[in-house]
Computed example of a mutant assay.
Amino acid sequence: MTNKVIGQDWHRADIIAALHKRGHSMRALAIANGYSPTSLKNVMDRSWPKVERIVAEAIGCEPAQIWPSRYAPVKSVAEVLAEVNRDLHISAQFNAVSAINGIKQSPICEVSHVN
């Protein structure tokens, strides 16, 4: 299904329609995979990776295509380290500017209350 917006989960009716177009039903998939006849409908409302895979394979795609919100992109170690280094660099710049301006930093932000 190429008409889906990236990042948006498929509507449950679209999932059912895609299954029907391929000659499947949620009930038949459940029974064929050893589940009770109505149990697979739970995948529509909550994450269940094993059943998401069953449904996706019946449709002919990956689970992340049907439920992108459930499959956040995995960051590489290099991406995580780059973010940490960026944050450390920003923190170091802030500390340097604060020192130049004579601003004393406190680990706890104090809030004054006006009565």
Rank of each mutant, 00 (worst) to 15 (best):
W67D: 05
A92P: 00
A28Y: 00
S112R: 10
Q105Y: 04
V74R: 12
K50F: 02
K50G: 05
E62K: 15
P107Y: 02
K50M: 05
A72C: 02
K104D: 09
I90C: 05
S76Y: 07
I15R: 05
R27A: 04
I16M: 03
L88E: 12
V84H: 07
A64Y: 08
I66M: 06
A18Y: 09
V111R: 14
F94A: 10
L40I: 11
V5M: 09
W48C: 07
R12K: 15
M1V: 12
I100V: 03
P107K: 08
G102M: 04
D9S: 14
V97M: 06
A18D: 11
Y35L: 09
L81F: 06
I15W: 02
I6Q: 13
N42F: 04
V51Y: 02
D87H: 10
N3Q: 15
W67A: 04
E110F: 06
N33R: 10
A96V: 01
P107L: 04
V74S: 07
I16G: 00
E52V: 05
I59L: 06
V43S: 13
Q8N: 07
N95V: 01
I15P: 06
W10I: 00
K41C: 09
R27D: 01
N33A: 09
H11F: 10
I103N: 02
H113V: 15
K104V: 09
G34Y: 05
Q8K: 15
V80M: 07
E79A: 15
S98G: 07
L29Q: 06
R53T: 15
A18K: 13
Q93E: 09
A28F: 00
R53A: 15
P37N: 03
A17E: 13
V84L: 10
D87E: 13
F94Y: 06
L29G: 09
V97C: 06
L19G: 12
K104A: 11
I100D: 02
I15S: 01
G60C: 01
K104P: 02
H24D: 01
W67P: 10
A58S: 03
W10V: 00
V80L: 12
Q8T: 12
H24Y: 13
S69T: 14
W48N: 11
R22Q: 12
E79H: 15
K75P: 03
C61A: 08
H20Y: 07
Y35P: 08
K21D: 14
N101M: 07
S91R: 11
Y35Q: 05
G34K: 08
H11V: 11
S39N: 00
N101P: 00
M44G: 07
S69G: 04
C109L: 10
S25I: 02
E79Y: 11
V77Y: 11
S39R: 02
P68S: 07
N95F: 03
V77H: 14
Q65N: 13
R70D: 04
V111F: 12
P37G: 05
V80F: 01
L88T: 07
R12L: 07
P49G: 14
T38G: 11
N85R: 14
V97I: 11
